[in-house]
Amino acid sequence: MSVTATRQSTFLRHALLILAAIIVLFPFLWITAAAFKTQIALLMGRVLFAPTLHNFADVLFSSTSDYVRNFTNSLIIGLASTALVLFVATLAAFSLNRMKWPNWVMHSMLGWAVIFHMVPPITLASAWYSMFRPIGLDNSYLGLILAHATLNLPMALWMMGVFVRDVPGELIEAARIAGAEIPTILARVIVPLVRPGLAATGILTFIFSWNEFPVSLTLTQRQTATVPVAIGKYAQENTIAFSGMAAASVLSMLPAVILLIIAQRFIVRGLTSGAVK
């Protein structure tokens, strides 16, 4: 290949990538601009507009908005359910892949995970409500944390399974010969080795929990409502308060965007080292 041809093809690649980036970014830029517009400027599609902070002020400080609380709730529920999922999934992945279960146990667990994953979450939401309500778990952090953990467990089980399988068996054997008990092996051998996998799975789990809408809506009330529920309120009876929704959305994406910028290398590295081989 000649130098010019290579240069041409590099140029072409960048051109394609930049085009794709523009298509991806456009709605983000659009919604960010929308957050600084008045509703009418937004509806009129005004390109030049006097920016206003009113929407943000409304979202953050108006008496009808609980945004700060929603945000805290989402963080607590997202982090706790992610931690729970990682804990449960790592243990289960270890158990299923490394503890010599009969085949049918492994297949029925993973098969069930796939089947459960197919059920639209909306059909589960009211079943969960009627289970949680009598024992006081509706409108509680714990209830939603359990629900989100359950929703994300199939994916986590599948991902962590691949990572745990990738841990060389000799290492585990060596640890056992050295007299280590199972908890020690888990803490000292498995967890350090699957750390990239934990990061990748954790980030995806957190994002899915952060964005989940129908189940959160059913299981929460004002005190425990999450960000998507708050944003859902902008879709009113007969109007959509677009500019308020835009401001709330921009604020809601901030932590996820920051997380992504910091952590995207972990996600890719984590997945690279195992999950989709």
Binding site: T64, S126, Y129, S130, R133, L217, T218, Q221, R222, V229, G232, K233, A235, Q236, E237
Partner: peptide, 14 residues
């Protein structure tokens, strides 16, 4: 307890 329009009926039913 303020809800999106779509969710109010389900919550009341529950």
């Amino acid at each position: 307890d303020v809800n999106p329009f779509a969710g109010s009926l389900e919550k009341q039913r529950n």
